[in-house]
């Protein structure tokens, strides 16, 4: 069993984020970290390998610094890493990103691809489905539980009123939600061991991806304009007392909210 876990480096979601003048994400404005939700995918992959044996590989696409996100996965226990990095990738949207990840997965080979359900920067939640579509593999997304039996993967997928049990033959793409598990912290041993693990650098030429199909030129979406949202007017702040409660109910009543 070979499991590829996709990880993304994002600006820390606990900090103020901003766009650059060219409407692209300012990746220097905030500390860069592994996407929080991807650590749940790493945990899922490690658990599957602990139960069934096999190997894990963390894959990322991005600037050279994306290797830091891969290293974090290696510290958690993933066996090896790969980063697709290439100047032509700058400005890639979700469609372009999915094409590149799919090409890398096809080249690396995998029985199972595990991804976080979304990244905390773009928050689109479309890339796992897109990668499955490009590869032509079944999609097992929004998993809150995952089990492998031979060549079949089974997940529980949350629905409005409960959950569906969804099954597919491998190879398949799985995305996991936060409810899935609790990601492990890297141990001291894990951090030491990660230093010796290899992270391969993959290029578009090496993957046979036409550079005009990625980056700004190959992305179907482009930001035409960006404005800061209008700031809210200062509100009424009062201390707790009966008059405050009455004023709050007046406030709600004026807006037909009670």
């Amino acid at each position: 069993m070979k499991i590829v876990v996709c990880v993304k480096q994002v600006p820390d979601s606990w900090s103020e984020r901003q766009l650059r003048a060219d409407h692209r994400l300012d990746r220097d404005a905030a500390e860069r970290v592994i996407n929080d939700l991807d650590t749940y995918a790493v945990e899922a992959a490690l658990q599957i390998v602990e139960q069934h044996g096999g190997e894990t590989l963390a894959l990322s696409m991005g600037p050279a610094s994306a290797e830091e996100a891969v290293r974090k996965a290696l510290q958690m226990g993933v066996d090896a890493g790969a980063v697709v990095t290439d100047d032509a990738l700058a400005g890639s949207d979700a469609v372009a990103t999915a094409r590149v990840l799919a090409a890398a997965i096809a080249s690396l080979g995998a029985d199972l691809v595990v991804m976080g359900v979304e990244s905390t920067d773009a928050k689109m939640s479309v890339v796992p489905a897109m990668v499955a579509e490009v590869l032509g593999w079944p999609m097992l997304t929004q998993a809150q539980a995952l089990s492998i039996d031979g060549a079949t993967a089974t997940i529980e997928r949350q629905t409005a009123t409960g959950h569906d049990v969804v099954q597919a033959d491998l190879p398949a793409v799985v995305s996991v939600v936060e409810k899935f598990n609790e990601p492990r912290y890297p141990s001291f041993k894990g951090i030491t061991a990660a230093k010796k693990k290899t992270v391969d650098v993959l290029t578009l030429a090496g993957l046979g991806v036409d550079p005009t199909t990625v980056g700004t030129a190959g992305s179907p979406t482009s930001v035409a304009a960006a404005q800061p949202a209008p700031t809210r007017g200062a509100g009424v702040i009062v201390d707790e007392d009966p008059a405050a409660i009455s004023a709050l109910v007046d406030f709600l009543a004026e807006r037909r909210l009670v």
């Binding site: 032509g136 593999w137 079944p138 999609m139 097992l140 089974t154 529980e156 629905t159 009123t161 409960g162 959950h163 569906d164 049990v165 969804v166 099954q167 597919a168 033959d169 398949a172």
Partner: peptide, 11 residues
């Protein structure tokens, strides 16, 4: 190749 819903559990 597709995934298959094999059961729906009402919560």
């Amino acid at each position: 190749r597709r995934a298959q819903i094999t059961a729906s559990v009402e919560g």
